[in-house]
Design a protein around this nucleic acid. Structure first.
Ligand SMILES: [Mn+2]
Ligand SMILES: [Mn+2]
Ligand SMILES: [Zn+2]
Ligand SMILES: [Zn+2]
Lengths: 143, 143
DNA sequence: GCGTAATTTGGAACGATTCAAGATTGGTAA
DNA sequence: TTACCAATCTTGAATCGTTCCAAATTACGC
């Protein structure tokens, strides 16, 4: 199973047409977790064949609404995408360099943390973001 | 104690110069929890005296770094500000209309939820955002 | 092979935020 | 009180990521 055939399978499973841009973008997101649009564009273009910027934006939106990728928007960051979906995992973000790492949910099921008072909202997802400083930045700033 | 004199006190306590824009913006944030910059600008201008857009942005940044207000950025939303600081509370956001309500932390102290694996990050804050549909939107969409 | 969805190309527009440079003013020390 | 000066405000333009537009071309799926 190559990354490409995985991507083709996933696209068909979501009733999305299998096109070169879609396969390339989905594979790139798999290979570069939490990458932003620009990084994905560069990854796709470093592979075979050119893809227009517009196509990447369009594809990312299609993949996101199909549930094949997840879009996250940490405060102060542009949109980032990942292929780990449906497992209710969370993130830890470096305040210094923006690095993002996955954090498994301590509870497991979504929503992982019931609100003490939901104010009548019907909650379907709970997003947890831990903020701190990554090991690299900690080392760099305390010599 | 008027809202204005409260704001002046808070500014002095934070060693910030007391200026008309700062007093007005801080009072507006107190009066309009989770308001965005544009709403704050309108609130300030509806009061006495004009204030430049740039001044409001500068003031909000100064107040945020002084810890007098908190800036939150729910995904898909512009920056919003609130005066409830230091109590580690969380938020529930309506996917339909963007309404935001406070949710007290179920644990109490910060960080309210230890990461299962912090990947070596030194975490100083954990942000929890519940996503759902508010009562008004639920009513409106299911007649 | 057809019909239509998707992509390309080139561009314009967008809104929130930021930058730059000069004018004003709050706090403080003389 | 007064003068000083860095901090703050005003004005106007620029930046950024992203979206949207429209027309022509391609190519997927049946
Ligand atoms: Mn992740
Ligand atoms: Mn709040
Ligand atoms: Zn870092
Ligand atoms: Zn709502």
């Amino acid at each position: 199973m190559t990354a490409t055939s995985d991507a083709e399978h996933a696209l068909r499973g979501a009733s999305l047409r299998v096109t070169r841009p879609r396969v390339a973008v989905l594979a790139a997101v798999h290979e570069h977790p939490h990458a932003d649009t620009d990084a994905i564009i560069r990854a796709v273009r470093s592979g075979t064949g050119g893809v227009s910027t517009q196509a990447v934006y369009d594809v990312l939106r299609a993949l996101t609404s199909a549930g094949l990728v997840r879009r996250i928007e940490p405060a102060g960051s542009v949109a980032r995408y990942e292929a780990r979906v449906g497992d209710n995992h969370h993130h830890v973000v470096c305040r210094s360099c923006g690095a993002i790492a996955d954090v498994d949910c301590a509870v497991g099921a979504a929503p992982c943390m019931a609100a003490s008072d939901d104010h009548g909202f019907s909650i379907d997802e709970t997003e947890v973001t831990h903020w701190g400083v990554c090991p690299d930045c900690t080392t760099a700033h305390s010599p």
